[in-house]
């Protein structure tokens, strides 16, 4: 079970709370986690990654165990803490309120 935290606008779209869980068959990578997320919540397709290129939307970042992995390869394996659900895979979004 992998935990994924979502920014508010994606929670609203998916109709979820701040954190969702997904299951991944095979290697746990950023790409496989996001694939599983989009399978469970089809309305998120195109919102985190571009529909066609699968590039990350520039106003979102991915964090794993406190480190920014947004610029790493989407096929890089994620650490055991993520695979085991001890730590969440965090999708952080830009906010502008003041």
């Amino acid at each position: 079970m992998i935990r994924v935290t979502l920014p508010y606008h994606l929670r609203t779209l998916a109709g979820t709370g701040a954190e969702v869980t997904v299951d991944v068959d095979g290697p746990v990578t950023r790409a496989s986690v996001l694939d599983a997320l989009e399978t469970a919540y089809p309305m998120l397709r195109g919102t985190i990654r571009d529909h066609d290129t699968k590039e990350r939307r520039p106003f979102l970042r991915f964090f794993v165990c406190g480190e920014d992995v947004s610029l790493a390869s989407p096929e890089d394996p994620l650490p055991e803490e993520i695979a085991s659900g001890r730590e969440p895979f965090m999708v952080i979004g830009a906010i502008a309120g003041g």
Binding site: H9, R57, P58, F59, R61, G93, A94, A96
Partner: peptide, 8 residues
């Protein structure tokens, strides 16, 4: 901009 290269 390193964090968010472009706005939503």
């Amino acid at each position: 901009r390193c964090l968010y290269p472009a706005p939503p």
